[in-house]
Write a protein that binds this DNA or RNA. Structure first.
Lengths: 198, 198, 198, 198
DNA sequence: CATGAATGAGTTTTCATTCAT
DNA sequence: CATGAATGAAAACTCATTCAT
């Protein structure tokens, strides 16, 4: 009981919830939240719309649940960052780790990035914005020179842009990711130098 | 007669088309394209929905018309850029001018930036993407080092982000804009240096 | 003055009304009354919708006016028929003349035939039905054998069908029309014989 | 339990689709396809418009579904006719059977007959036309004399007209139907004789 | 767990019609 | 004669959501 069972059933056991999230995110990222209907999601999963409502109370809840599941790593990163000394090395490491986090949840971040107007009215908007700001506040001293503040924010956006907007650049995606990371790291490094870090 | 008349009426004469565009853009930028209904636009203008259809064939056409009217300056800028020698000074000037262009059509660019998922299915998406790419291709040699290519793209996104995402940063918006411009210019300058510019 | 003028202007003088009728009938016959919009008519004539309203009070009036202009010949035919002796020759002549009438106003009759459901609610419906019935009553004695009554009605429908439904039959339209007329005449002849006509 | 239940509820169970078709056809036949709105259909059934869309994807699909369900007998008749020897008896039998078919699906055929302009743009138009042509081709040799071809087509239209246009003729509908059938049969018989049938 | 059936509120769009100029 | 601008009413259709089974 509850142990290993058959395996085929296990894949479907409680798995529907996850499958809904996967398909929903894929469609949200592709066509936007508003233009993705529950009918579409249900059809792709070959279940009825009503089935979605067994697992989630509303359409928005589907999105919220995806968001909550996938942004845990960012919260962890923020937590970690706050406990480190505010050295350049820490900041560089945060950039590095953030790049990894983005890479692992690309569709969600692509969605967040491309649907800001939608997301703004949708509870999670504030939540997401707050996280990004927390992150920014770790890598830049709010008392620093404004130009350096911008540089750090820009580092974050460079990572974002690298994920979603530069798909046509460079031949090898890995190489491109390395280049993006380098530019972002550079920006943070320059900001740090400007801020008087020796 | 026929001369100057009252002025109140004159403002409404033939002005409706423009007023629709204005209100529509405002709402599109605020709530997104999909979530803005024609009823909403019409109500704000105190006309009927059908009046909108007298001036525009479809909802999409409203957006397209706004887009076409407001992106002319970018096309001009691209045209100008292509006829200049590819010096660092040129590139810096393009960044400067592009910043101005963005500032003058903030709501449109905010809209484009925050509704990419929507815009992608909407004809003008490709058109806009193409313009940004053209701009990028002017400030970076496609044969340059990949890191420097990213730096230039990043310069453009820094300007974008500066417009729409950094509204809480710094006390004085003008100062912030100057800071944003400086970071973007820096990125281009660094890219140029890397590319072997003396 | 008022005499011959230029000729170009003369063609347009008061001609608009006729042109509206022509285009309207063409479109009504092609796509049906309901699916033909005034916008469509106006666009084809290269005038505005409002111009149509200068010449006709309503959409229905356009149709009514066409109807009235074009069905005069039928009324004349009925009038003529009523004053003839009820011989077989008269009936045959009516069939012959009716065939001519149909041929001369094909689009109208095609319209009436293919849009009966529409026309029924539209005033002219009754009017048209009454005319056809009058015609029928001339070529068949209401006291005749029911089979012969049907034969006569069938003669009329044969003519109609020949106009609108047999376009693919036979190589030469003229030949086909002659065949149609022959069948219709035959039917009337048979009916007459049945009715005890010597 | 599960057995016979009440009967009132049972009639409504799964019956909605059929009820929609029935009411729709009734209204389509009465006022025409274009002038019948989904609101009207829904109101008569005491359901919402959206309920219609649960059962049919579009308004047109309602019509198509009715058409497909009701024209099966014609297809069967054509199939049967093709496998018979082309004797006069066969042709007469086809006329007889076709009259029966028409009588059993009167509203649909009335609709098809009175809304040809509408139906023409509506997919099923061609489909219907093709069936009628197939039928015609069975009862008349395409190489026959043109007059006899017309006679056969006329036989079919006589049946049609008998259904929809002669409602005022004769006192007893059954008698009238018999008369119509007789005229149609006569026409086919004459055509056969003309074609060289002994 | 999931479905079949339905709803209410909304959407974009079209149309015949009006009227001041 | 004709237009430019607008309207009120209605159309077809979509969507998130509900609920008995």
């Amino acid at each position: 009981m509850g142990g290993t069972m058959d395996g085929t059933k296990q894949r479907r056991r409680g798995d529907t919830r996850r499958r809904i999230q996967d398909v929903a995110l894929e469609l949200f990222a592709e066509h936007g939240y508003e233009k993705t209907s529950l009918r579409e999601i249900a059809e792709r999963l070959d279940v009825t719309k009503a089935a979605l409502y067994y697992h989630f109370k509303t359409k928005e809840e589907i999105l919220v649940s995806i968001f909550e599941d996938l942004t845990q790593p960012i919260e962890d990163l923020i937590e970690w960052g706050r406990q480190q000394p505010p050295t350049l090395a820490t900041k560089q490491e945060i950039i590095r780790r953030y790049a990894d986090t983005l890479a692992e949840a690309t569709p969600l971040f692509r969605f967040m990035h491309e649907n800001q107007a939608t997301v703004r009215d949708l509870q999670i908007g504030e939540s997401f914005k707050a996280r990004i700001h927390s992150l920014r506040d770790i890598i830049v001293d709010p008392d620093a020179d404004l130009v350096d503040q911008v540089r750090c924010a820009s580092a974050i956006f460079t990572l974002h842009a690298g994920m979603f907007l530069l798909q046509d650049m460079g031949d090898d995606p890995k190489e491109k990711n390395r280049a993006v990371l380098e530019v972002a790291t550079d920006l943070v490094t320059q900001a740090h130098r400007g801020a008087g870090g020796s």
